[in-house]
Every structure is written in structure tokens, then in C-alpha cells.
Nucleic acid binder design. Structure first.
Lengths: 115, 115
DNA sequence: ATAATATATGAATAGTTATTCATATATTGA
DNA sequence: TCAATATATGAATAACTATTCATATATTAT
């Protein structure tokens, strides 16, 4: 490249290249963001703000088909965004850790929207 | 539904339903997360941690074709995740606000990965 | 053991998206 | 104005994903 900003910005470019996280970490991050980037899955997370719930209660809260919700829960679970425990014939879901809500709140702050 | 947890969890389900953010807000949120859920775009954000950069410097830092980077920058810009200003024949990009890095750091904390 | 309830899953389809290639636009210097 | 540099964009293809439908698995009560 042959850019006049060479002196000003190429140091930033070099630092950026040297400190770039490894591909595997970036892909894991991307995977996680992708998991929370679908409206139906976000709804599930907003629902679980109000406490743990079994699948049919989640279906009640977010709408849609049971099968669809189950598929989405599987993805959320695979990414460790929600956790599940069995209670009798129910599977009770809840948010996996405190980072989840914090990320949602930060994103809402960025968008200046109230949740 | 006919679930034994009716008494225990249905209050949470009702609260979840009543306090569910509007569809438009959820879609805006999802849109934003989707934008930061692709490895190539994440790389750009990690690059811009080190300061503002013009497109060719970003290309240098993250790799890939100029055209691809430009397309990705357009999406990041449309979601107000990066901002751009013209400086001569360059367009200089930077992170749009302090929430961006904060979200990345929270996500990294969740994944227990160091960035 | 059987029926009923709760949840999960495989396959198929329809919709979405990243990348590439070729080209267009915009700015500067000669 | 012309050439060179920097960035953006339209179209096409290939890869991915959400949803639906049908069905499977697991648990409990009778």
C-alpha cells in the first residue's frame, strides 16, 4: 500500500496485527454473538430475566411452536448461554451467568433503547 | 398447558410475557448482534481498538480482500458500530462508542478468553 | 406395562448472507 | 484534464440457518 497516512496510522495497523486474537478465539466469540443475534432467541433470554422456566412456560412467554423453541434452546445451551437442569419430567432453563444480561444491557445502552 | 410447575413458574412466565420488549426493539438488538457475529467483522473491531485507521490499513491488519473489507465496513457503519470520516482521499474508521469494546470484553469474560 | 405429558431431534424447505469479481465513484497531484 | 490512488458497490454464487412437520425419547402416574 502506498498511503500518505503511512506515518500516522501504520503503527496502529501494526499493533492491531500483532495483537489480533487467535482465529479460534475470534470464531468462538462470533459463534456466541451469532447465537444471541436472532429475535426468537433474544426473546428467550429476555424471558429468562424473570427467573428459571421450563420449556412450555418459555413457549408461553415468547410464542411460537414448541419444536422451534426447543431447537433454539439447544443452540443457546450449546453456547453456554443458558443452562438446563432436569426436574422430574421438566427441563428447567435459566441464564448461564451474569454476563448474559450485562451484554444485553450494554447493547441496549448503545441503541438507547429501554428494556 | 398442564404442567405441575404451574404454581411455581407461571408467575415468571406471565411477568416475562408482560415485560417482553417490543418486537421492533428486539429486532434492532438482533440486527446489532448479527453485525458483530462474523469473524471478519470482529477482526475489524479488534483492529480498531488500536486507534482509527483508513481502509487499506484495516485490510493490512485483518487480511482478506479490499472489497470484502469494504462490504463489512458498510454493515458495521450502517449499524453505528463504527463511524467514518473523510480525510483527503482516505476514509478513516473508528469505533462508534465505548459500548462496543465493553461488549466485546464482557463476551470474552463469559468465554474466559483473553483478548 | 401403558398412557399421558414434556422435551428433543432429523429432514426438508425457504430465506439470508459472505465472498469474489468486475467495475464505479471520488479525491488528489501533475 | 488526465492519471493514480482510495474506497465503494452490484451481481452472482456458495454456504449457512430458522422454521415446520413428523416423530422419537424420557419421565411419571395409574
Amino acid at each position: 500500500m502506498n498511503c500518505e497516512h503511512e506515518r500516522e496510522h501504520s503503527a496502529a495497523a501494526r499493533a492491531a496485527k500483532e495483537n489480533m486474537p487467535h482465529a479460534a478465539e475470534i470464531e468462538r466469540l462470533a459463534e456466541n454473538f451469532k447465537t444471541i443475534s436472532e429475535p426468537s432467541r433474544l426473546k428467550i433470554l429476555f424471558a429468562l430475566r424473570h427467573g428459571e422456566m421450563c420449556v412450555l412456560h418459555i413457549v408461553e412467554a415468547v410464542g411460537g411452536a414448541q419444536s422451534a423453541v426447543s431447537h433454539q434452546l439447544r443452540l443457546l445451551r450449546a453456547s453456554n448461554i443458558v443452562k438446563a437442569r432436569r426436574d422430574g419430567r421438566h427441563i428447567v432453563y435459566s441464564l448461564a451467568d451474569e454476563h448474559i444480561l450485562a451484554v444485553l444491557e450494554l447493547a441496549c445502552a448503545h441503541l438507547k433503547c429501554k428494556i
